[in-house]
Computed example of a mutant assay.
Amino acid sequence: MQAGTQPVFALIAGELSGDILGAGLIRALREHYPDARFIGVCGPQMQAEGGESLFPMERLSVMGITEVLPRLPELFRLRRQLVDTLIAEQPLAVIGIDSPDFTLSVAKRVHARGLRTVHYVSPSVWAWRQGRIKGIRASIDLMLTLLPFEARFYQEHDVPVAFVGHPLADMIPMTPDVAGARDLLGLPHDARVLAVLPGSRGGEVRQLLPDFLAAVRLLRADQPALHVVIPAATPDRHAEITAGLAAAGLTDIQLVDGQSRTVMAAADVVLMASGTATLEGLLLKKPMVIGYRLGGLTYAIASRLVKLDHVGLPNLLASQPRIPEFIQDAMNPEALAGAVQHWFDHPDDVAALKDDFEAVHVQLRRDASTHAAAAVKALVEGTL
């Protein structure tokens, strides 16, 4: 960068979680580059920090093959527009934030034209389709990972990497406020509480909710006073869960809109779908039982591609796998209920789990934005 030239960084986010990360990164980079401009694809939080968006972030927010296919011409046009602008602007670094299908394709093109590239939030290349690492190594100058085992994977494959910690670990207190969460939900402080999280997508709820509710019926047969709370991620999920509760004859279960973190904080045990919410459960130090089921063909394909012994992040992060996982045919009401009951009946196991999860929380709590900005600065200034 020439003296007197205003530094420019490009950040590309494709969804809400990326917008949150991008806003924190802009704030942290301003500590090093107070006069910098930030351009690219920005959501509302990034724009509130001064990010200049070439087009609305929502235009990249598509999921699933049937949704993406009709949008491909537009997505290609947006990518071409973005790449042309970045080549003209010559930012100090182009930082893709998650959304790897789009952001890594942009990185490949601008890296070939000599721009420095960073990717923030590793795709799950360590879990499946590991052959993608060759393309990442060829087009990314720095990978920023949220989890430590991801960083080890990139080190083994000679990709420059920095483990920056997880923003959720910065946000969630080390000691959860169980009493405060129960007050917010109107739950007795001395009650035994089970949180049930059947997923945020319609397909997940349809696959998981019947078995989850059947497990609740088994648990309540022995524990009639068991309080059960289910957070509904969206109005559509609320309607689907309400119908499921009626079909199961469990209309006295507490159903709340959103507030999944509060519901987990209030619970003694969590029965939940596999997914990112399991990391929140870990950070809240909650004993969990994970269940998941995919369509038969999807599972047949995925089971041949995935290279992991466990699917839940708590089992990948903790010193040893402690969370029961029931996947596909192994998931049934009896197995789920038995695993939940084990946590209620074995406080020593719960105490050991909480100690393990606290150690993970400390490891992940690194002020992710500050570490990410420092790594980007080191790349830009040649000290990485």
Rank of each mutant, 00 (worst) to 15 (best):
G186I: 02
A112R: 14
P176I: 15
L146D: 02
V178K: 15
A191M: 10
T145N: 00
D211G: 00
V161F: 01
P210E: 09
A162F: 04
V110I: 05
G114Y: 08
R132G: 02
P123W: 14
A215P: 09
D170H: 08
L146I: 05
G165E: 03
E204G: 05
L168V: 05
L185C: 01
R113A: 14
V216A: 12
V159K: 07
P176E: 09
V125A: 11
P176G: 04
H189E: 13
V118G: 08
P210I: 08
Q130G: 14
A215E: 02
R129A: 12
R201E: 13
H119P: 02
L194Y: 03
A162R: 13
P198M: 12
D177S: 00
R182V: 01
G114D: 03
A138Q: 15
L142H: 08
R109P: 00
Y154W: 11
L208V: 13
R109E: 15
T175Q: 14
L197H: 10
I136S: 01
V106R: 01
D158L: 14
P198V: 07
P188S: 01
P167Y: 14
Q130Y: 11
M143Q: 06
R109Q: 15
L115G: 08
T117S: 11
D141P: 14
A195L: 10
R217T: 12
L144R: 03
V178I: 14
M171Q: 15
S200M: 13
E156H: 10
